[in-house]
Write a protein that binds this DNA or RNA. Structure first.
Lengths: 119, 119
DNA sequence: TTGGTATGCCTCGGAGAGTGAGGTATAAGG
DNA sequence: CCTTATACCTCACTCTCCGAGGCATACCAA
């Protein structure tokens, strides 16, 4: 029995959703964002730089984000802001996410009378 | 604007969760299961054979499923049943799934006063 | 008989996401 | 001066999933 496969993953594309959402609340630079994600998820998620930076670049290339280089106290950062297009994308992604979650939750609770669980 | 990246995916490892759950409700063979998933998800998901069969094999190798060849009317099938170990795995995965979903939903609705949304 | 369709299993190649480790550069502090 | 923290980036690897293909049998029709 060699397997094990690591702790269950789930998720996919979720980093993008979170990035879009957090940046829509407040513009941030990459390094800051990576730590903000950990805080916002109470350490439940911790996406690495190798995950977030590419997401940032892709979103910017798609016009969903607008990155601007700023230098503060000798520290050079690239602050990202969500564009109008990005907000649309966030909107859509959030809706798709919720639909998927509902579908799965329906399957998981099917036949589970006596456990209200879901609000 | 070359991108597009397909409709948002999300999910990952979800097929396994669904397989475990559906099989725990009723033993099925692969082909049947694949169609059951489409029905159960109202066509929202449609995992292909190239996804499901490997999942089945892996779960069996892990001892979470027990596959038994049965021949009915000349048709040979491999019916999978969830083992005790498999139920444990389902339990764990379901819990992990819910936690993840809650975390993400919290971020998505954060600061959205005036929209109760969550129950 | 021959052929098409449905059942039922399987696997391979490829695309993308995410991890972990690495590499660069500057600033602050001992 | 050297380490640590900040701040960016990228590459190699693994894993998942999709799409397409292959195999074999059963049934039905021409």
């Amino acid at each position: 029995m060699p397997t094990a496969r690591k702790p269950p993953d789930f998720l996919n594309g979720v980093p993008e959703l979170i990035v879009l959402r957090l940046l829509s609340q407040k513009p941030m630079y990459g390094y800051e964002l990576i730590q903000a994600i950990q805080v916002a998820t109470s350490r439940n998620f911790a996406f690495g730089e190798g995950c977030i930076y590419p997401v940032l670049h892709r979103l910017e290339a798609d016009g969903a984000l607008n990155g601007r280089r700023e230098t503060v106290q000798g520290r050079s950062r690239i602050v990202y802001r969500v564009t109008a297009k990005g907000r649309g994308r966030l909107e859509q992604s959030a809706v798709a996410w919720k639909r998927s979650v509902e579908v799965i939750q329906a399957i998981l609770s099917e036949g589970n009378r006596a456990s209200p669980a879901m609000a």
